[in-house]
Design a protein around this nucleic acid. Structure first.
Lengths: 191, 191
DNA sequence: CTATTAATATTACTTGGTAATAATTTAAGT
DNA sequence: ACTTAAATTATTACCAAGTAATATTAATAG
């Protein structure tokens, strides 16, 4: 039968996928070694499986990452910055619009509060790349459509490149959420 | 003076750094265009500034990212897994140890709860790469040294590759935190 | 007006590929 | 045992985005 040959191939391709899952940064040459096949075979397999080359894979991962940081960090600050003392404190305002609330309840979707606080926390830190290490939020009161959320962030402590930042958000003076973020600063050179 | 030449150079190099900060995925050619200088000049500048080539930069970012996912995902689940029905629900237990609490108050540092819940949420999803899109946690009761935190996660909804997962954590039957995570599943092929 | 530095050009080489084609195994079916 | 078709491997020409080294051409400070 033709099966056993196909099976051999399938097994190898499965192994290939598996290897890449464990370590997506393998070159075709390394893969060939691992699968004890030739480089062209690996390439054919990748082609059949629709797996792109190392550099494209790497690039996509990196872009996604960078995009993620940016969208939650410097690039797209959620809310409008009112005050900013880098390394110390900052204030931003977020106006709740209709696409941000649950249509039934008119309550602001939680992650907007999270994002506002988080992006403000990150904005306080002046570094090439800023990561949120951990975040803990406490939602106190629901926020509604047309509310204006004022987020107040303050660096509470710093150990090396790790910053602890507290962010409390208020609507008309009433505290609606309180959050604490651990933010890690990285310089481009370190990357 | 030699200054004006040096100054010209310095300005260009500053601009280079700035450009890379905005978009680290620029080739030397693109940089040359942006700085209206030649490619060799850009290379010399990079050399002087100790900035590595595009592909190395990309790779490092990607590796860091991948490492991060892994450490917060499959790799290092915070807490011990008790039950797991992939795509549906799971339970993990975290024993609070001395290095996890604030020494003054003996209260568990919030990000452990966050990490336990988050990593459990991620563990429910069976994909090559799982990202936490957004997370909102509500801390209800402080958790103390030697407590055993039981986190209970449940997939509440799924839209495409976006999963909503609810995680509630209890200590001796008392709810200590409640969290909701939006988790995004990505297959290797898509990367 | 020349010595010096900056800037640019040029060349040979490297990695990790794509794409296409040709040659060679290998196991299957008869 | 022999053929045949798929699977595998080899080979070749090419590309992008570099490194590294050297040569050449401004530009300008003294």
């Amino acid at each position: 039968m033709v099966l056993s040959r196909n099976q051999h191939k399938r097994e190898r391709q499965q192994l290939l996928v598996q290897q890449l899952q464990e370590n997506p940064f393998l070159t075709d040459e390394e893969l060939a070694e691992l699968l004890s096949a030739s480089v062209p075979t690996v390439r054919l397999d990748r082609l059949e499986l629709g797996i792109s080359e190392l550099r494209a894979r790497t690039k996509d991962v990196a872009e996604q990452y960078y995009g993620q940081i940016r969208s939650l960090a410097t690039g797209e600050l959620i809310g409008d910055l009112l005050e900013l003392e880098i390394g110390k404190r900052g204030i931003s305002v977020l106006e709740v619009k209709k696409d941000m609330v649950f249509s039934k309840t008119q309550i602001l979707r939680g992650h907007y509060l999270f994002a506002q606080a988080n992006s403000l926390a990150v904005a306080l830190i002046n570094a090439d790349v800023v990561l949120t290490g951990s975040a803990y939020m406490r939602y106190l009161t629901p926020v509604y459509l047309k509310d204006k959320v004022v987020a107040n962030a303050q660096v509470t402590s710093q150990r090396g490149s790790n910053f602890m930042i507290r962010v409390d958000s208020r609507v008309g003076g009433v505290e609606v959420s309180r959050g604490r973020f651990t933010v890690v600063a990285k310089e481009m050179r370190e990357l």
